[in-house]
Design a protein around this nucleic acid. Structure first.
Length: 620
DNA sequence: AAAAACATGAGGGGCACG
DNA sequence: CGTGCCCCTCATGTTTTT
């Protein structure tokens, strides 16, 4: 049972969210006018996002689909108290205009005074939540993790600095509140509404928000969460293609006799990881898929290529896939390309015929990759592949402990010691470098395993710790290059690349090693050392093209993109592996899923991709 | 001040077995 | 089908060392 204080707490967090969103989203009317001006059929597809232009804010009010009836009444929290005499009816009118009952508003104003609109809003929201929530029992989460899930991220949000008291701030708050209220009135949970509004922006239409929530529900919901009639609405979704994918690509056998379970047959089903994890095929295995059909919306140009960890929390890949035009992910383990495992999912709209690998093929066992370890490798260590290369390495003291644990014995150590050593070796990816001596991989060894040139991340003031971190967050170049290889014959004169979350430039290196000329590369990467690494590589490899680097994907708005596109002549490929922090299993602290602090930047990948797609089709 | 070392499991998939 | 066991995971926050 959910008690009232909990509900109220959630509404509190909603308010904090609104404040946070007000800061985060600055509205972009100019873009909408520009794009919608020629009426080129982009009504509900044009997402409006950040812009820092003030005049755009001015225009926001009139353009909003979910308009505030009386904008003038919406004042910043600081202003309301300045003229108490006349503001009583004004404040009351304002909240009534937002859709609250006059009775309720005056009651709350009586109780709390009218000088603190924020407080009034809180109260109104909590009251109306209790009153109008259509199916309160439905908000009981059978899955206890779900509420925690959202809870932690909202805590983050409420920590956000909400000192802004500008006018647009007030508008944004009320705008969001109205939208949220509408959604809750429609029967959606606050959490879902919040997430949707956060992702799509306050300017988005109700339809878009509802659509988003559907997607999220589909990804998350268990059978028991939703009443059957609501779920039936999802069932027209892709059943044929999904089935084809499961049968043909994932090698999945559809068990007979489950026709009864119509409801959960397709969408509710968890995405199955292929075994072996070879996607549409890898150079070293005979199993291949040579054809797939893409959803119409996904067909390029431009081509896009998205990457993230395969073992994300449940529902994440379904959501990602749904945003990326329903293209099904290709799950590939890089252990088929090199000596280290790296299970990743890739969503792209590239052709998959006539792929070819980078040559020479890298060694695919530890012994081949590190011949010197063979001499010291004990017979009781059966590993032939390394585990996933992560962002941290084992410490020197750990390897010392292991040495001491072993050297007490003449022959093979007892099984318990073997177990301990093996566990540690697997956990930290240690290799044998001497008698009773294990060691973590060196930076340059990691570089080689991942397909980068040696010393790619070396120098320029980067610490060893940070090198491991940057490398651990990177692509495996051979794997990505194999997928991108189909571009070579399509673009003999080179490509224009938009590289988001570039990191140390895995995509750039892959294309370069494929022999695909890079004409213009726009590289967006937050970390300065990483940008330096890419810049340095760019100069060392005598690139003929032009490298433009930027810091923040969130600053890449429609205006900026249009500029870039007009100077570059359009992007042929948009690559991005968005942050996995909140998805990766190694994260004990904040594995919050796609809504996590960093991983939610996926939605910026989608936003930018969608913008480029629209701009590309528009100008061609 | 910066770099390195350390402490901190949950969550799922795969598999064998009954 | 369920259950138990094995295994793996693009990490974060704090403390210690350099």
């Amino acid at each position: 049972m959910r008690d009232q204080s909990l509900v109220f707490g959630e509404w509190l967090s909603i308010f904090h969210f609104c404040a946070w969103a007000a800061q985060r989203f600055v509205f972009c009317k100019a873009e909408r006018l520009k794009m919608g001006g020629d009426d080129s059929g982009m009504e509900s597809d044009d997402f409006d996002w950040n812009s820092e232009d003030d005049r755009e804010i001015e225009n926001f009010q009139s353009s909003s689909r979910l308009s505030v009836p009386n904008g003038d009444a919406v004042t910043g929290s600081g202003e309301a108290s300045s003229s108490p005499g006349s503001s009583n009816s004004k404040v009351l009118d304002h909240f009534v205009a937002m859709g609250f009952s006059q009775e309720m508003v005056s009651k709350v104003i009586q109780e709390y005074g009218e000088e603190n609109e924020a407080k009034i809003l809180e109260e109104l929201l909590s009251y109306s939540a209790l009153e109008s929530s259509p199916q309160p029992q439905q908000q009981i989460e059978p899955d206890p993790s779900s509420s925690e899930y959202a809870g932690s991220s909202w805590d983050d949000l409420s920590d956000a600095d909400i000192s802004s008291s500008s006018d647009e701030y007030g508008k944004v708050v009320s705008e969001n509140v109205v939208t949220l209220r509408s959604l809750v009135k429609m029967g959606y949970k606050q959490n879902e509404a919040l997430v949707a509004l956060e992702r799509l922006g306050p300017n988005s239409s109700l339809e878009e928000l509802v659509d988003f929530i559907y997607a999220a529900q589909k990804a998350k919901a268990e059978d028991t969460l939703l009443p059957p009639e609501e779920k039936l609405q999802y069932n027209d979704y892709k059943s044929n293609k999904r089935r084809f994918y499961e049968l043909e690509v994932l090698g999945r056998k559809k068990p007979r006799g489950c026709e009864k379970k119509i409801i959960c047959e397709d969408d509710e089903e968890a995405l199955h990881l292929p075994n072996p994890m070879i996607g549409f095929g890898v150079p070293t295995e005979s199993d291949f898929i040579t054809h797939r059909s893409l959803p119409d919306d996904a067909v390029g140009p431009p081509y896009f290529y998205y990457e993230n960890v395969a073992l994300a929390p449940k529902g994440v890949w379904q959501t990602i896939s749904r945003f990326l035009y329903d293209v099904q992910p290709e799950f590939v383990d890089s252990k088929y390309f090199c000596a280290a495992a790296r299970k990743r999912g890739y969503i792209h709209n590239l052709p998959i015929e006539n792929r070819f690998p980078l040559l020479p093929l890298p060694p695919r066992t530890i012994h081949e990759a590190f011949p010197l370890t063979r001499k010291w490798w004990p017979s009781w260590d059966p590993r032939t592949k390394l585990n996933c290369l992560q962002t941290c390495i084992g410490s020197a003291r750990l390897t010392d402990r292991i040495r001491k644990a072993i050297e007490n014995y003449d022959g093979d150590p007892p099984e318990s010691v073997q177990k301990y050593v093996l566990d540690q070796c697997r956990k930290w990816n240690l290799v044998w470098v001497g008698r009773n001596k294990v060691a973590p991989l060196e930076c340059d060894e990691v570089e080689t395993l991942l397909g980068f040139p040696r010393n790619h991340t070396r120098g320029g003031g980067i610490s060893r710790t940070d090198r491991y971190k940057s490398l651990g967050n990177s692509f495996q170049v051979d794997t990505v290059a194999y997928h991108l290889s189909v571009l070579k014959e399509m673009y003999p004169n080179g490509i224009n690349l938009l590289s988001l979350f570039s990191g140390i430039g895995g995509a750039e290196v892959a294309l370069h090693r494929l022999g695909i000329p890079l004409k213009n590369v726009v590289s967006v990467e937050k970390s300065e050392v990483n940008r330096n690494i890419v810049r340095s590589w760019w100069e060392q490899t005598n690139q003929k093209g032009n490298l433009i680097d930027m810091e923040d994907v969130q600053q890449l708005d429609g205006e900026r993109l249009e500029q870039l596109i007009s100077t570059c002549g359009g992007f042929d490929l948009i690559v991005g592996g968005s942050p996995c922090n909140n998805l990766a299993g190694s994260n004990r602290v904040s594995r919050d899923g796609l809504e996590g602090k960093e991983s939610s930047l996926f939605f910026d990948y989608f936003r930018i991709l969608d913008l480029v797609k629209n701009l590309t089709t528009k100008y061609r």
